[in-house]
Amino acid sequence: MFTGNSFKKTFSRALLLMLLASGTGFLVNAWHPEGFELVSREKLQYETIVHINTEETRIKHAAKIALFIDSRSRTEYIQEHIEGAVNIPANPESLSMKAIQEHYSRINGPVEMVIYCSHHSCGLAETLARRFVTLGYTRTIYIFGEGIEAWQALSLPIEQNDDFKDSSAGSTHETN
């Protein structure tokens, strides 16, 4: 029957009613023109991380308004890096923190941060950017996703170390 005699039964019916109502609410919200966009807390936390393309990166580099950060390892950085970039390796954490301390004044200065690594599927830049956010950096952090490979392909300014140049060329030949 409609009226349950025991309070427990009625209470569970009440909970069911509320659950049903909530479900309808979320369903309608998905279609509502002024509905809420429900985002995960993680996404909200890292919303200051912005991905930019090669052209935007080139403009920032030419205007000298950005601090370029190479998130790859020390050796890779020494071989070649975007002109004026500093090295803050994303992994391991201890090295990363040490490098951040080393470049602390420049990071906190009036510059935009552009982090890059080797190419698109390289996650080091994202890792480093998230580390900055967790450390309390609140300004926008730019990630140059296409990385140093795209930069080199357009023959934009890079700094190379000649001692490593030959060996690196050799290694790429080997892999090819």
Binding site: L17, M18, L20, A21, S22, T24, G25, F26, V28, N29, F36
Partner: peptide, 11 residues
């Protein structure tokens, strides 16, 4: 804001 109005409506 999504849940409360619908509980009100259903009740």
């Amino acid at each position: 804001a999504i849940v409360i109005p619908y509980i009100e409506l259903f009740a």
